[in-house]
Amino acid sequence: MGRLTTHVLDAAHGCPGSSIKVELYRVEGSQLTRMATALTNSDGRCDTPLLEGDDYRSGVYQLQFSAGDYYRARGVELPEPAFLDVVVLRFGINAEQSHYHVPLLISPYSYSTYRGS
């Protein structure tokens, strides 16, 4: 059965992004349906897959990472409004493929992502 996982790395500090709020939404037209909410652990990962089982199906999804809150909690001074407060990644899942891993590399002023393994 398929699953969706994520991992956050803090490029500004050279460490995993821990205690970052991650929200997963299913996108259907202009409607967003929240599927999961989690906090990353000390390794920058969620303790369980964000999507699996009967909920894992083909479609468009959106991950939202609360990067601004993370950097503020670390004592980083951010302008108001922050340049990257919430990082939004919208992507498609083909449920025939068993595992989608969506890593996020962040800093206060940039981010990068890719389909991992």
Rank of each mutant, 00 (worst) to 15 (best):
L104G: 02
F65K: 01
S107N: 12
G59N: 09
I106A: 04
R72P: 11
V88L: 10
Q64G: 04
I93R: 04
G75L: 04
A38H: 08
M1H: 13
R90V: 14
L39G: 00
A38V: 02
V76M: 06
L84F: 14
G53A: 06
A38G: 04
Q64F: 05
D55C: 00
P16K: 01
Q64E: 15
D85I: 00
M1S: 13
P16L: 00
L89W: 08
S107L: 06
V76D: 11
P16Q: 01
V22L: 03
R57N: 10
P81H: 03
S58P: 11
S66T: 03
L24H: 12
G14D: 13
A36D: 12
L78N: 08
L24S: 13
T113P: 09
Y61L: 07
R57Y: 04
D54Q: 11
D10Y: 00
Y114V: 09
S18Q: 13
L39N: 11
V86R: 12
S98M: 14
A95P: 06
G75D: 12
G53F: 01
R74N: 10
F91C: 08
T33I: 01
G92R: 08
F91M: 10
Y111V: 08
R74I: 02
S19F: 07
Q62S: 09
G29F: 02
E23P: 05
I93Q: 09
D47C: 12
Y71F: 15
Y100G: 05
G75A: 02
V27Y: 03
A12H: 13
L84I: 15
T37V: 13
A73P: 06
D55L: 07
R26D: 09
L32W: 07
G29Y: 00
A12K: 10
V22S: 07
P79R: 00
H99P: 05
P108K: 03
I20M: 15
G2A: 12
G116W: 10
E80P: 01
V8M: 13
T6N: 12
D55K: 08
N94W: 08
N94D: 15
C46W: 06
